[in-house]
């Protein structure tokens, strides 16, 4: 299984390197959203709850873009058929795609966080950076898992671009609650507040539950 995951991941990364599609789009979209937020809220700088909320809503919408594109090459170029013919565990597709989405989100967040700091964020995020990375990583894992599930669910439907945001947004509400609340004290002006363990617990629980669930039912989304 490990070699299958590795092969799938290499294929996707190669595709991304040759024709970068998802990551630049997600970054550009996020920066555009920050500009919109600046004008919509008429704020030069944001802090605390507001900053955390803007950051997470933007990241989530950007993630939806990535989720939409996740299986497109498989669907359009017949990658599913090739994969199904190969004598490998089908769950390796889930693992590979979830890791890919996680990597996408992480790369996007590097740029987005930098842009956010420059454009909107009041306090410097460098102090609480380790905590911030921890929250981002946990939330990314959750988004990656449900994103892969939703993408696989939606790819075979006629209204794919409608179904993905419709299902992914309500599903990620607990993630956004936990991540935004966890980040809020970190982005407050004048000394970061402490990271609350209960939000990390929610994020971890979410990752665990949906990780196991995805592992159990992903097979059924690929069978032909």
């Amino acid at each position: 299984m490990r070699s299958a995951v590795g092969a799938l991941l290499r294929k996707d990364l190669l595709l991304q390197r040759r024709t970068p599609e998802a990551v630049p789009a997600m970054v550009l979209f996020s920066i555009g959203t920050f500009v919109l937020f600046h004008f919509a809220l008429d704020e030069r700088e944001v802090t605390g709850n507001l900053a955390s909320g803007i950051l997470w809503v933007t990241l989530l919408f950007a993630a939806v873009l990535g989720i939409n594109r996740l299986f497109v090459s498989e669907r359009e170029e017949g990658g599913f058929d090739g994969f199904l013919l190969a004598p490998v565990d089908r769950t390796s597709m889930l693992v590979a795609k979830a890791i890919l989405l996680f990597l996408f989100l992480s790369v996007v967040e590097v740029f987005v966080l930098a842009a956010f700091t420059i454009l909107l964020l009041g306090p410097s995020p460098w102090g609480p950076l380790p905590e911030l990375i921890l929250v981002l990583a946990l939330a990314n894992a959750g988004i990656a898992v449900i994103g892969t599930l939703v993408a696989a669910l939606a790819i075979q439907t006629r209204a794919r671009d409608l179904i993905v945001p419709l299902i992914a947004l309500p599903l990620s509400v607990p993630l956004v609650i936990a991540a935004a609340r966890a980040c809020a004290p970190l982005l407050t002006e004048g000394g970061a507040g402490a990271l609350e363990a209960r939000w990390l617990a929610i994020l971890g629980l979410y990752d665990l539950v949906f990780g196991l669930l995805a592992y159990a039912i992903f097979d059924f989304l690929l069978e032909e």
């Binding site: 599903l171 509400v173 607990p174 609650i177 936990a178 929610i202 629980l205 949906f210 059924f220």
Partner: peptide
């Protein structure tokens, strides 16, 4: 598959909110 995912989501969501 959707029904199972959503069914598991119900208690988690209540906890988080």
């Amino acid at each position: 598959v959707f029904a199972i995912i959503a069914g598991a989501f119900v208690p988690l969501n209540f906890m988080a909110v």
